[in-house]
């Protein structure tokens, strides 16, 4: 049986203590297989961001267990002393807005992560060029960020998330600022990249247009995670509308 890319068991997160304690996550469990793209849905305040921050090793869960591939990274406590390294080497992030570094050009934004991993400049730039090629924006490599459209910037952000070959990508409403055509285009990219590299992708979204493309959905209600089957509709991108 294939090892899940990420396995979450009984994950809890409580903010505060005593009478003022707020339980943001209650025994959440999930499993995402390599190459799979799952949706994480829920109303505002349901705990989506908390779950993403726990999975991204940004905040400390109160209990539970997280496995990345075959490695336990959290079991009541973090198994990595340096969580910054864990994030750098094992997790990719795509945000609601691209949040690219404005003073670096497109190529440098993508190459930054491999460089932080200790790769040589030549290796890092080669990897960045390869990803930009795959994402169809290689011709923008030398451009400044503000010269790109919103959709192109989001592609660069996806390239940056993939630059360290992470087993998992956490995408926090990656289509929020985009129109429906560009949103679908980004979803197709995420699916293609997941399929191509075997990366698991968890997409937090409110976007009703893209929810049907997920084959599996996790829905959070008051900190409790429910698994639901998705429609798994094929992604159709209207290329003409993107021009």
């Amino acid at each position: 049986m294939t090892q899940p890319a990420i396995l979450v068991e009984e994950l809890s997160k409580t903010y505060g203590s005593g009478s003022s304690a707020v339980q943001a996550l209650r025994h959440a469990s999930m499993r995402v297989m390599p190459g799979e793209v799952v949706g994480l849905l829920g109303a505002s305040g349901s705990g989506k961001t908390t779950l993403l921050q726990c999975l991204g090793a940004i905040i400390d869960p109160s209990g539970g267990r997280i496995e990345l591939g075959s490695e336990v990274i959290f079991d009541g406590e973090w198994k990595y002393r340096d969580r910054r390294t864990l994030r750098r080497d094992r997790i990719g992030f795509v945000f609601q807005r691209p949040y690219l570094i404005p003073f670096l050009n497109v190529l440098e934004n993508v190459a930054m992560l491999p460089m932080l991993q200790g790769k040589s400049n030549a290796q890092a730039y080669a990897r960045a060029r390869e990803l930009l090629e795959i994402l169809g924006i290689a011709d923008r490599a030398g451009m400044q960020i503000e010269q790109l459209s919103g959709g192109q910037q989001q592609r660069v952000a996806i390239a940056r998330a993939l630059a360290n070959d992470p087993p998992i990508i956490l995408a926090d409403e990656p289509t929020a600022p985009l129109d429906s055509h560009r949103a679908m285009s980004v979803m197709k990219l995420l699916h293609d990249m997941a399929e191509r590299s075997g990366t698991a992708v968890i997409v937090v979204t409110h976007d009703e247009n893209i929810i049907p493309v997920f084959k599996r959905i996790y829905r959070l209600r008051d900190g409790i995670l429910h698994e639901e089957p998705g429609e798994g509709r094929p992604i159709v991108v209207d290329e003409a509308a993107l021009v």
Partner: peptide, 18 residues
């Protein structure tokens, strides 16, 4: 003016010393 970018840099693993 670049706190958000700094947050992203930290998130993707940029060391504090950089």
């Amino acid at each position: 003016t670049k706190l958000k970018e700094i947050a992203v840099l930290k998130l993707i693993g940029t060391p504090n010393r950089l």
